[in-house]
């Protein structure tokens, strides 16, 4: 089937099998920053933004993204500069192995779009669909708070 999507800002047309998962489609384009960590929609490693909303791309078919705009970790940078959430994850040591990080950052970026000054509980709730096995989340929360602060002050 033919699909048209805007992938990290660039329009593209592809031929996909109806059963192909969106995550496999994305990874197949060479954008391997979107990861797979489970097979039950539990971990969030595959999170991407679909028209700005965080979605688990292992739980959508590529064909369901037809006509939509997809943002992955590779599309976070703006005009060659790191997105604030990326800088804040590094600054606050919000990552260790880095496997959850792309999904975690996308979920967080979407939260900050919607709520520029979230409380700790709001952050924890927002990222509760994204599992991190390394960090214990404290520094992820700090990174999101830091990014929020920087964005509000800019």
């Amino acid at each position: 089937m033919q699909i048209n999507i805007t992938f990290n800002g660039t329009a593209q047309t592809s031929d996909v099998e109806p059963r192909q998962l969106l995550v496999d489609y994305i990874r197949g384009t060479g954008a391997t920053g979107t990861h797979i960590g489970c097979d039950t929609t539990s971990c969030g490693a595959c999170t991407v933004l679909v028209d700005g909303t965080p979605m688990k791309s292992c739980t959508m078919f590529a064909v369901q993204a037809n006509g939509k705009s997809i943002t992955t970790v590779e599309g976070l940078k703006q005009n060659g500069d790191l997105h604030q959430i990326q800088a804040s994850f590094k600054e606050k040591h919000g990552l260790q192995c880095g496997f959850c990080t792309p999904g975690m950052m996308l979920t967080s970026a979407a939260l900050l779009e919607e709520n520029p000054d979230p409380s700790e509980d709001e952050i924890r709730w927002a990222i509760s669909g994204n599992i991190c096995r390394c960090t214990g989340y404290i520094n992820i929360v700090k990174a999101v708070q830091h990014a929020g602060e920087q964005l509000r002050n800019s």
Binding site: T32, G33, K77, L82, K90, G98, F99, T101
Partner: peptide, 21 residues
């Protein structure tokens, strides 16, 4: 020190086994 390895991870440029083609 902020971690040297982070630059690639925060940009989706880590190279895990499943990324090898």
């Amino acid at each position: 020190i902020r971690r040297h390895e982070d630059a690639r991870f925060i940009q989706g440029a880590g190279n895990y086994v499943d990324d090898i083609e």
